[in-house]
Amino acid sequence: MGGPSTLPALLAHRAGAEPDRPALICGPHTLTFGAWYARAMALASGLRSRGLEPGERIVLRYGGGDWTAYAVAYCGVLRAGLVAVPLSDRQAPAVAAHVLADSGASGVLHPPGAHLPDGVLPDGVWAATEEEVEAEGAARTAVLRAPDPGARAQILYTSGTTGTPKGVTATHGNLAHGCTLDERRRPLRHSRHFLHAFPVGTNAGQTMLVNALDSAATAVAAPQFTPGRFARLIQEYEAGSIFLVPSMAIELLNSASTGRYATDSVRLVGSTAAALPQPVALGLARAFPRAQIVNYYTSTEAAPAQVTLLFDPERPDSPGRPASLRDLRITTADGTPLPPGEAGEVWLRWP
């Protein structure tokens, strides 16, 4: 069985196979695959009933406590053949205004009770909650063509730490690459739940959304990161996999929260977004002695391609062993492969 051509196709498959299975939990909200699919389809129908054409851009402005609503909005936009532009509500008004203008957005979806800062919404651009648009879609019967895998699906803006945020595009096929329709090959099968606290609108957050669609484990999204809350959620859900950035890992270790809660369920600790410092990796290995520490690295421009390195406490000076050598190569600057033991550039193959 091959992989899905798009993320909406993956959602349809999961909803058909396990409609009552929880896919995503955030605070008091739980989203099953069946509800996720039904709501996304209603939203897609509502968006198209507004006269939007395939390829138009929709900004999704959501916060850390809105992960279930954001998941519905994201898949609904993609299913309608539109382009999703994720935007965290933590971003400053100037950044939000830039994303809206630069992306050429036709509309903004946001959770109930949220409001855009004054002056951010350009003339002619509408704003609505995903619930309002879902209701519009439920009142109509729309025939939606499946999105073209080669069509643009997402524009994700870089953090802008070195300048004005830049939009990075991805196609439907790119986003779904590596996902599976085979239940026997689902990732994170060692876990009933995986836990993260990444914000909407980040590359790490988007990876977690794809994990929620594709993995065997139910996603648990913490609305915001605090060491005590994160450790408590590990205990509450017996999380088998947890995902952090190095700054979160440092806070978690310094707080000693892992000693106050039962965290022995953890089998995988994934760190992403930056290099994992050696002392932090060693600290995580001690705090979670039954877990494999994994350092994931990519860039917004390269995602979802990434380098996966398995940390070895016996060789702490090494960044880690590659999880697979199939798609990695050490080369000269011009791409010529080098023999074992030679230093060079790391090249990652991607279709």
Rank of each mutant, 00 (worst) to 15 (best):
R48I: 05
A23F: 08
A138F: 09
E131H: 09
L7E: 00
M248R: 03
G64P: 03
L338V: 08
A69W: 09
R267K: 14
A231L: 11
G240M: 12
R90L: 07
T263S: 02
T226F: 02
G270D: 01
M1F: 04
A302K: 03
Y157G: 04
P19E: 04
G124H: 05
D118K: 04
L24Q: 07
S106Q: 08
A151S: 15
S257H: 04
A38Y: 03
L87T: 11
A219N: 12
A239K: 07
T162F: 08
R90Q: 10
G344S: 12
S191P: 10
G107H: 01
T336M: 09
P227F: 03
K166Q: 14
V307P: 01
S265A: 15
G320T: 10
A146W: 05
F194Q: 03
L116W: 00
P351A: 15
A291H: 07
T162A: 11
E18P: 01
N203K: 05
G55R: 09
S271Q: 01
P319Q: 07
S49T: 14
P93W: 07
T30N: 02
L87E: 05
D118I: 02
A69K: 09
A256E: 11
D334E: 09
A219Y: 06
L156F: 11
D148T: 13
E136L: 14
P337D: 06
